[in-house]
Nucleic acid binder design. Structure first.
Lengths: 139, 139
DNA sequence: ATTAGTTGTAATGTCAATACTTACAACAAA
DNA sequence: TTTGTTGTAAGTATTGACATTACAACTAAT
């Protein structure tokens, strides 16, 4: 099991905007050409990024732009924009409350697994769009 | 998106074996009664735990037992037994190789996301079955 | 105003994974 | 030989990801 490709697609989208904003008009078709997916997928992701105030999209004539400097956009911002916030692991929903293990499992295992999620979020927060831009070759 | 309930179910299963091994014969029906799922689900999970050498299951007459002391079984062992090993995030598969961003995205983002996975695995490794047993009430 | 190009969104289809259930052959011990 | 259990296969339902088609709403330029 793994996360959908929406985070990678969203990051790719933001990078394209940051890199090419002065050379081209950044339409969903333009982005889709770099990402390699259907333009509708890009428009949906752009809509999520827009709801999270990460980008501005101009309806009609078209064109997307970042809403903040790349140094102030973290992967956690992007992650939260495109993925629903839920527990990392799905728990079985009917453990037996009359059993010592059944009545405790959610409590004792859930807290440990929550810690793992929190650590992952901190790591996502430490990665900025700017740091990814800096990693691009000859840029 | 989240992981399936197989890890929680597997941990629950191992805890039931550890706690009740001296009082009851641990059949898939017995475990299923505590976990609250169909016995076939338990048998499938037990089969995966058996393949990973974490438990012994006696066919025919029935009964499951741990193959090592609870202090020597980590959640990473269990995780690897029940989940396939793959990247945390699914990557879009056709980025444009003629685009600066498209040709680099997998490299620069993939390594960062791999680090997150590795950290999560280290955390899973630090949690033993024994530590969960110690967290159970009045045990 | 009209046109051209784009966005926003709905509807639909395909595919894969999860989870549940029924069914039954293989098995081990009494 | 009987009894209870395991190991698996098969079938169904549900969900989510992703792709695609279609089109109304919108904006700027002509």
């Amino acid at each position: 099991m793994q996360f959908s490709s929406r985070l990678p697609i969203a990051v790719h989208t933001l990078l394209v905007i940051a890199v090419f904003k002065d050379q081209y008009k950044i339409t969903s078709d333009f982005i889709a050409g770099s990402v390699g997916v259907n333009p509708v997928i890009v428009r949906n992701v752009l809509g999520q990024l827009k709801s999270a105030n990460l980008v501005e999209v101009t309806a009609g004539i078209g064109g997307a732009a970042l809403n903040r400097p790349p140094a102030e956009i973290t992967l956690l911002d992007v992650f939260r924009a495109v993925e629903v916030d839920e527990d990392l692991f799905h728990f079985h929903e009917h453990p037996n409350p009359d059993c010592l293990v059944g009545k405790s499992i959610h409590n004792i295992l859930g807290t440990k697994l929550d810690d793992i999620k929190k650590t992952a979020e901190l790591q996502l927060k430490s990665i900025t769009l700017q740091s990814l831009l800096d990693s691009l070759p000859n840029k």
